[in-house]
Design a protein around this nucleic acid. Structure first.
Length: 420
RNA sequence: GCGAUUGUAGCUCAGUUGGUUAGAGCGCCGGUUUGUGGUACCGGAGGUCGCGGGUUCGACCCCCGUCAAUCGCCCCA
């Protein structure tokens, strides 16, 4: 007889369980609470979109679009793509669902995203992000508000220590373009001294050379032209207002003039919250301003800012910090004699209805059940045995008096009512 | 796509320079002890040693291939 082979999980997907799942839920719950404090509206977005939603807005040459998208044809022959990020889909909805009427609009969401990449620590093919966006707001105050929210989120998760906010400006479109050309010129001069990867980047995405980890590149990056020398007066003023706003809001930040973002649509403010506690995947939350994005989807000029945070990465930090409350179990029921099973089941149902978290041990060798119950770590152990003389089940409780009292008030009447 | 490391019981791992029938702890199941008890002991189920080739009288061990996981490069949250 042929053995049935168990299907394996898809590479880069995760089955999250136990402490990790609790940490994951804790991150999402904290985010939900905080986004309400900042008055961000909850939105639910589709997990897939027409491929062009992403290919147009992220830039055809970016790695995400050119080699990391899960794209497929549906039965109608249309090219669809599992979302690799939230922003593009939200921008699309802003146009197609008439959200322009609510501008400036603050929205928040979270859920799974998909990128075909080699999995490693803190990086998965199906991963999960929190996301917050402000659409239709050109003021630096919007950037500040978003960053303050991110900062508070990390603090309330108890993981702010060792996480720093790296902040930069990419300038407006003319500033960014002038800087880009100067960078290309600078790196071309010493092209042969660059790493192989960076020689490639020089053609495709020269800004990325700036945050290369290769020591050969680092030397050249050190002497590279800085964005500050290319900022227009307006761009400079904008950045100043952001940093002053952060100072006023009490959000600590560090200028990082070599911080760039991977996607084409970013302008002005760019930022990352970074830690060194997660190996190579140190970015825990990242985003910036994307004033040009909505135009690439055929819409009007709509200034916007947003960020996304990796839930898995946040959850790993939370778990490290052991900030999680263990599952509270109020009462564990033990059926030490199967003749007491009915009363136990009755009690279990009533206790749960009364709001106690409760579980039951009623299988395996009866003489070993009590030990199992003890190991469950409940506040109260409620044991059911059978009295031969009275010919009925009897209960016994152990635990702190106030708990025993409350629980017995529910259980005792059920025991007394047996057989009536 | 590239590199490094690792694949032995449900889990965590031993397994000598290649040598009889591959082990332990935990967990699970059963029994004994105790008898209001987180004890101790005994027993049981569970392995094609990731998969496929090769070398050898003989492979968990050596060689090749392959798959997977982990970590890193790239890229990103």
């Amino acid at each position: 007889m042929a053995k049935i082979e168990t299907p394996r999980p898809i590479r880069g997907t995760q089955d999250i369980f136990g402490t990790e799942a609790e940490a994951f839920a804790h991150v999402v719950e904290t985010f939900e609470r905080i986004r309400k404090l900042y008055r961000f509206r909850r939105v639910e977005m589709p997990v897939f979109e027409k491929t062009e939603v992403f290919s147009r807005s992220l830039g055809e040459t970016t790695d995400v679009v050119s080699k990391e998208m899960y794209s497929f044809e549906d039965r109608g022959g249309e090219s669809l793509t599992l979302r690799p990020e939230f922003t593009a889909g939200i921008a699309r909805a802003y146009l197609t669902d008439g959200w322009q009427q609510y501008a400036p609009l603050k929205v928040a969401t979270h859920g799974p995203l998909f990128r075909y990449e080699r999995p490693q620590k803190g990086r998965y093919r199906q991963f999960h992000q929190l996301d917050a966006e402000i659409l239709g707001a050109a003021e630096p105050q919007a950037d500040v508000e978003l960053l303050a929210m991110a900062d508070q989120l990390l603090k309330e998760l108890g993981i702010a220590e060792g996480v720093t906010l790296q902040l930069n400006t990419l300038g407006d479109a003319p500033s960014r373009e002038a800087w880009r050309m100067a960078l290309v010129e600078h790196f071309r001069e010493s092209r042969d001294a660059l790493s192989e990867d960076s020689q490639e980047r020089l053609e495709r995405n020269p800004l990325r050379i700036l945050d290369s980890k290769d020591p050969r590149d680092k030397a050249l990056v050190h002497e590279a032209p800085r964005i500050d020398d290319f900022l227009s007066g307006e761009a400079e003023r904008y950045f100043l207002q952001v940093t002053e706003g952060l100072d006023a809001a009490g959000v600590a930040w560090h200028r990082n003039a070599t911080l760039v973002r991977g996607l084409d649509y970013y302008r002005h403010t760019a930022f990352e919250f970074v830690t060194d506690r997660l190996g190579a995947q140190g970015t825990v939350l990242g985003g910036g301003r994307y004033d040009g994005l909505i135009e690439t989807l055929g819409g009007p000029h709509v200034p916007a800012v947003g960020w996304a945070a990796g839930i898995e990465r946040l959850a790993m930090l939370v778990a490290d910090a052991r900030k999680l409350a263990i599952d509270a179990l109020d009462v564990i029921l033990v059926v030490e004699d199967d003749r007491a099973l009915r009363v136990a089941q009755q009690s279990l149902a009533q206790l749960r209805r009364a709001g106690f978290s409760a579980d039951i041990v009623a299988s395996g060798s009866p003489r070993k059940r009590f030990d199992k119950a003890v190991k469950a770590g409940a506040r109260v152990i409620l044991s059911f045995t059978f009295d031969e003389e009275q010919d009925q089940a009897v209960r016994a409780l152990r635990g702190p008096d106030e708990w025993v009292e409350k629980i017995d008030a529910i259980v005792l009447p059920l025991v007394l009512a047996q057989g009536q």
